[in-house]
Design a protein around this nucleic acid. Structure first.
Lengths: 243, 243
DNA sequence: CGGTACGTTGAGTCATATCAACCATAGTGG
DNA sequence: CCACTATGGTTGATATGACTCAACGTACCG
């Protein structure tokens, strides 16, 4: 086996270059200068995590933020009786933990790996310096935050006013737009029933019952954790997204 | 009646100076330079609204944001069947609508006056120019947004996991911290039962029933819309704020 | 005086949570 | 290799929190 093929085979262990990654993922970092990107490249730490690993935990002080290169992470808050409420997911190109860095407070969420991840860890000071010195980066970060805020507010309205049934349909559709379907219309992300319940904000049993109801109505098919979307319009109708 | 006394009597109609106001309210604007404050002062528009007036409506394009000088505003989203979900309140020193300005999207909330207001309207361009040219202002605005985001996430967790009873107690406590109590322990803000329901995310009747239950348990007293907090510890216990 | 908005109470219903039992699968260790 | 355990999934029975609907009271306002 030649050296080249070894490199090719294990190319995921090679540290990705921020400038390349920024363009590919169309991430926030595309607003950085060449010098700034090189700066991150030099300062960052490339790390690998497996399903179930915790990147940081609610209450932890963190001294940097994460940019996801590969894999999927769930970000959740822990409520009463330790029940998780999943706030968001992060995938390639997304950054997490920046909120705690900006507000200089302990993390108010926990980040746990759902699909094996490679992430870049970037020290707080780098973020601070970019925010101070690069107005257009700063502006984009602000836009990103505003966008998340708007999503959070929408979700408050949903969760306060919609039924569990409607919310579950809506969550499935969100997963479709965020993670996409494969060639056979299977959702690319797979979650446990409990995780689904922790997004929707309901009991695991309720998710199970509603999923099999959707299945009975020929809206989806269930193959273990893989969910096939067979009637997206039907889900949209249930979810009430358009009033 | 002397000229002085006329001025004194009607001093609320005189346009407040941003530099004075920024210091008094300890608002975001304290991070602006003297020149920038003078710039706002020159460009801004001072407006008055009465209870029930709408500053801007969901879906509107807005070309500026508001800084509240006096009064109280509720900011809400309209859900299914037109039911309001109150997202936040704004009072003296708070700014609203900045999110839509930053993301350059139509407003995703409606702002309506709860207590007669005086507000300064500041054109979008001013905000943009400050964000671009004043990193410390920009940073503080980002912190503010992050703070709101964190609050929204907490509320999602609450609303998904707590009972209406717990949430109502929690909302009352939030109103205490945000608006305070007068010398007789009456909440300084008064809301209709429906408005309370639209914060908690429940039906008006449920709020009424629970309020009179709290009253029966000697936690509060009800005198029309005025609510007297007689046992704050009791409310804290019910609200489950400390696990 | 009638009208309108808000507040209150009661009765009935339903969606959803809770509790409990059971099955399937995979990993572990003796 | 098999019992053992843990985890996740499923189903049924039951309980109940909260919503809905409806009626009525109250207060203010022109």
């Amino acid at each position: 086996m030649s050296l080249i093929s070894v490199i090719m085979k294990h190319n995921d262990i090679h540290i990705p270059f921020c400038d390349k990654c920024a363009i590919e993922t169309d991430s926030l970092f595309r607003h950085l200068t060449k010098e700034e990107l090189e700066n991150i490249n030099f300062e960052k730490d490339y790390r690998h995590y497996k399903r179930g690993d915790v990147l940081y935990q609610e209450g932890n002080r963190i001294n940097g933020f994460y940019c996801i290169n590969r894999g999927i992470i769930k970000v959740f808050k822990t409520g009463l009786d330790g029940k998780e409420q999943i706030i968001r997911f992060a995938k390639r190109g997304d950054i997490i933990a920046y909120r705690s860095v900006i507000s200089n407070e302990p993390a108010c969420t926990t980040a746990e790996v759902i699909e094996d991840c490679s992430v870049c860890f970037i020290p707080s000071e780098i973020l601070f310096s970019f925010v101070k010195s690069n107005p257009s980066f700063s502006f984009e970060l602000m836009r990103l935050t505003c966008h998340e805020l708007e999503e959070a507010n929408s979700y408050i309205t949903d969760i306060a006013q919609k039924t569990v049934r409607e919310r579950l349909a809506e969550v499935l559709l969100h997963l479709v737009t965020d993670f996409g379907l494969d060639e056979n219309n299977y959702l690319k992300i797979s979650l446990t029933r409990e995780e689904l319940a922790n997004i929707v904000g309901t009991a695991t049993e309720s998710v199970i019952r509603l999923l099999s109801e959707f299945k009975g109505d020929k809206l989806i098919e269930l193959h273990g954790r893989k969910i096939r979307i067979t009637n997206q319009k039907g889900l949209e109708k249930i979810s009430n997204v358009f009033g």
